[in-house]
Amino acid sequence: MPSLPIPMIVAILLAYLAILTLARRDRPWPFVLLILACAVQGTVISLNQHYGVTLFHTVQPVTATLIPPLAWIIFQVTAIRAFAPSRHLPHLLLPAFVAFCMAFAPQVLDIVIPSGFVAYGVALLIALKQGPGNLPLPRLESGERPGLIWRVIALALIASAFSDILILLDQVLGQGRLQAWIIGVFSSLILLVLGALCLSRSLESEPNEACPAAEPPPVMDLEQNRALIERLDHLVTSQTLFLDPGLTLNRLSRKLGVPAKLLSSTINQTTGENVSRYINAYRIEHACLQLEAGESVTSAMLNSGFNTKSNFNREFRRVKGHAPREWLATRAAVPD
């Protein structure tokens, strides 16, 4: 009786999610590419390991090493800057190099493949360590979640390299008896995690939004920082930019005519908050006015630039010290 291995089940699930995402058009399209790459890899693993199709024995290392550079490119174009072929496409030389090694030096693949996963995982972690100012394209409404999700993706890439190390140890110590299980279970979990994370609404951004190349921000003194914050306060309040749930750091910086990193660092140095919390403070004050005017919590949330109740409640409690209904009750209890 025909059976489906775990990687094939994961591949079918990811392919379904990718098609559903394309049909709904509610996620940035580059993430669909990563989901499909994970689905293809699950299919290749199944055809090679479970069904014994020898052709896919040579294909599997190449399709595997397509995932790390693809994740890096998608991170760049959805979080930092617009797609540029000369900057991003050279990363696809990794699977090309693996194909070359597969043909002429297969003995080095046990080093090249895990090294590629680790290198891109570490590169992601280093880029994220630079702070929110290094992510100008995600929506500010998402707060710190895009950075957290990308950290998990980076760790998943590194964990995938660990599976290759386990396979190598099994070949040395156990004559490869556990190899099929390690590849099937471990790889399936990694692929499923990568695919599922790419569906998060927190990663929504405007990948086609122009973003200048990253440059070191100029050094500004205290007075210059305060002047910039005053300009920002006036811009945000006069144009009620905080009501836009799609607002990004890049859009703010373009309106002010300053680099995104400079704006982010100035907000942090002057207010002690990051850009997301700075904007959300305006949103919460607006939500309070809405609640006092008799609007429901949901209406106040949507009218103030928030899309999700979890983020709204978390930010409301951070700013006001209470949940929305509790805050409203305390206001009602205060005598005139």
Rank of each mutant, 00 (worst) to 15 (best):
Q179C: 13
A214W: 03
A281N: 10
C211Y: 01
A210R: 08
R151T: 13
A119H: 09
L140Y: 04
A99I: 10
I229E: 00
Q76L: 10
A82N: 05
F83V: 01
P95M: 11
L157W: 13
G272M: 14
G143A: 13
E204P: 05
W150F: 13
M8I: 05
E206A: 08
Y120T: 02
H234Y: 01
P212I: 00
N225G: 08
V108L: 13
V108D: 11
L13G: 02
K309A: 02
G133W: 10
V40F: 08
S163R: 14
L194A: 11
R24L: 15
S304A: 10
V275L: 06
M1P: 07
A227S: 07
G176S: 12
T78M: 09
V152T: 10
I279A: 05
L20V: 09
Q239D: 08
R27W: 08
G195L: 01
F117M: 00
P138V: 04
C101S: 12
G257V: 03
T271F: 02
S265N: 13
F316M: 12
R314F: 07
E292H: 05
L128P: 14
A281I: 06
A329V: 14
V193C: 15
I74N: 08
N313W: 04
L189E: 07
F162P: 03
I35P: 01
V172N: 01
F31L: 03
